[in-house]
Design a protein around this nucleic acid. Structure first.
Length: 595
RNA sequence: GCGCCGGUAGCUCAGUCGGAUAGAGCACUGGAUUUCUAAUCCAGCGGUCGCAGGUUCGAGUCCUGCCCGGCGCGCCA
């Protein structure tokens, strides 16, 4: 059993069956982390609920459970408190033994900190980021990109095969306009489209749109281009492709900076499959024609007037829309990619659409019961006024500008520290820029991931770059500090023998150890619920526990501690650093050895 | 009108699917310290969990109604 929580659950479950028979096999042990240390480290709340079921007093049941419980090597004899809580207090020796059993970090490859991979690895698709290629990426794509990447990293870490799919918007009427604008304004590159570069994608779109609105002749050309695209005209497709490639290069630059790996598989990929999907829906009798459009009607979805709300899969003009593409993609992912779990990292505003998508997928049999479809619905990024985040002029904030600003501000923090004699690390120009880039990206990512994904949050550079509180700089600093301790002690953590005993005597040592030992259960929870803020919360606790451990007054000596304690404590340092590095790594955040 | 999401300390946010006296950070107040990195630690202050009912041993969490804010609701994606 890799986590203490799982171990206790297992033991309580056993005790329940031993005491009350097989009927209790499905009773939840309800083991939780205690929120107040006076109640111990973990608690089981199952006796209260069981009281009703078995017609006994909860406290007596708790007594029976405790008597039938075999946890002697793990914790002190459990206490029964209040209405029937069973409180577990871990033995320091048991905690030390668990930490000791964590294998050393491998010289190469991923440090797993003893966390096992899933017993049944599956193929997972994470639908994430998905910008519209007609324009530049903006704040609206930040959360999907970051959350999706984090989720993908965690599922990969658990051993699943993960496809991070960038379902980009690379098809639709606006591309006719863009192709036409490209033909008119950049005739010289039509001969060698590989060389096409559009430094400012956004203004290219804006001027194309302006042209479209102003000049009827241009509009006619643009509409013709749409027809040519749909008709598969090679020359038009070539220009369209070149435009998309250039737009994807813009995206790629952002992904590289954010350290996000992603597979591009946009809407156009499914074009050839769309007619077949609609035909299949019709032939299965799942779709009907209403007002000239092919519609799928699903139970429970009604419109403004209370009439059935359709999912339109073919417009009355014969064209397809995003419902068609999404359905086709769903089918493709299950049937061709073998996905058993599909996670859509999409804003909460799309909730109804995704509900309909899932319902239609089930009905059509493309997403059978053994395929888990999830909408990881996130809230909006708001400005300081609580309104959607916009520039001062009211325009959308480009993601590139936002990241630049984060790095710029991180750089200012680095500079001001270097100007302070007490804090200066003597970083040269290249170091300063590297630190600023890492801290800037980390700050943006961490700030996003540390919020509950369901709620909106106010974007705030000052908060995310603060050295205090639950922020990336605090966490990165804690890590750098631990690494520095190793250097100062003249010890390479990686060289500490794995059998070096860990002793937990001081309160701060025990507190740190108790946090560290929880890592597997936190990863397991996050892999299940896909709520990254559970992980950030945990890493913050880890950092705080370390700061207390290393505190002059409330902590212990490390580097100059007497020999047996010294190595034990350096091992704790190493385990804390590895936990932070691995945990931050799962969030997509790189650590720094010095900052 | 119907549906969804939210409303928790002055501010920014958590709250582990119903558990014990609701938690952090910032801000504010006080304290520690002759630094193994002060980018630290400890303590205090601060709450009718939007309002009103209900369910039960127990409700910020579940059910009902209402108030406020945001979003969605037939051929954009």
């Amino acid at each position: 059993m890799e986590s203490i929580l799982a171990e206790l659950e297992f033991r309580v479950r056993q005790a329940l069956v031993n005491c009350f028979g097989d009927g209790c096999r499905d009773v939840e042990p309800q083991v939780r982390l205690s929120q107040d240390e006076r109640f111990g480290d973990y608690q089981s709340n199952c006796a209260m609920g069981l009281g009703k079921k078995l017609g006994k007093k909860p406290r007596e049941l708790a007594r029976e459970i405790v008597d039938g419980l075999d946890v002697a090597e793990l914790c002190e004899p459990p206490d029964i408190a209040g209405p029937g809580f069973i409180n577990f207090r871990l033995k320091p020796s048991a905690i030390a033994a668990r930490l000791q059993s964590i294998p050393p970090a491998p010289r190469e490859g991923v440090d797993r900190m003893g966390v096992k991979t899933a017993t049944e690895p599956i193929t997972v698709v994470v639908d994430m980021s998905s910008p519209n290629l007609a324009k530049e990426m903006h704040v609206g794509h930040l959360r999907s990109t970051i959350l999706g990447d984090c989720v993908a990293r965690i599922l990969e870490f658990k051993g699943h095969q993960v496809h991070r799919i960038n379902h980009v918007g690379d098809w639709g009427t606006q591309f006719g306009m863009l192709v036409t604008h490209l033909r008119n304004t950049r005739p010289e590159v039509l001969g060698n489209l590989d060389q096409l570069r559009l430094p400012d994608l956004e203004s290219f779109y804006v001027s194309a749109k302006a042209e479209f609105d102003r000049d009827p002749g241009f509009a006619a050309q643009a509409r013709k281009a749409v027809t040519q695209l749909q008709g598969g005209d090679p020359e038009t497709l070539r220009i369209w492709k070149a435009f998309c490639d250039e737009s994807l290069r813009h995206c790629g630059a952002i992904y590289d900076r954010l350290d996000v790996r992603i597979e591009n598989c946009g809407e156009s990929f499914y074009n050839d499959l769309l007619p077949g999907v609609v035909e299949e829906l019709l032939s299965k009798g799942l779709a009907t024609i209403s007002e000239g459009a092919v519609c799928v009607f699903l139970d429970g979805f009604v419109n403004r007037e209370g009439n059935p709300l359709p999912m339109i899969v073919r417009k009355s003009d014969g064209g397809y829309n995003y419902a068609t593409t999404d359905l086709t993609a769903l089918k493709y992912r299950v049937e061709q990619l073998g996905a058993r779990r599909i996670v859509y990292v999409v804003g909460v505003t799309q909730k109804q659409h995704l509900q309909m998508l899932f319902a239609a997928g089930r009905k059509a049999g493309w997403a059978p019961a053994n395929v888990l479809t999830e909408h990881l619905a996130f809230g909006s990024v708001l400005g300081p006024d609580g309104r959607p985040f916009k520039t001062r002029e009211g325009g959308t904030v480009k993601l590139k500008d936002l990241l630049d600003e984060a790095v710029f501000r991180a750089r200012q923090v680095v500079e001001s520290n270097e100007d302070d004699k007490a804090k200066a690390r003597g970083l040269n120009e290249a170091d300063r820029q590297r630190v600023a880039e890492t801290v800037g990206m980390a700050a943006v990512r961490y700030f996003d991931l540390s919020h509950n994904l369901a709620s909106d949050y106010k974007f705030n550079f000052d908060h995310m770059l603060a050295m205090e509180g639950n922020t990336a700089p605090y966490m990165l600093y804690a890590y750098a500090r631990i690494r520095s301790i190793g250097r100062k002690a003249g010890v390479d953590y990686a060289d500490i023998p794995a059998d070096t005993p860990i002793t937990l005597e001081h309160e701060s040592e025990l507190k740190l150890a108790k946090v560290l030992v929880r890592f597997p259960e936190v990863v397991s929870t996050v892999a299940g619920e896909l709520h990254p803020n559970i992980l950030t919360e945990y890493l913050y606790e880890t950092s705080k526990a370390f700061s207390l451990f290393y505190d002059r007054v409330h902590g212990v000596r490390v580097i100059d501690a007497p020999p047996p304690a010294r190595m034990s404590r350096l091992r704790l340092c190493d385990l804390a650093a590895r936990t932070l590095r691995l945990g931050l790594g799962l969030l997509g955040i790189r650590t720094l050895e010095q900052m």
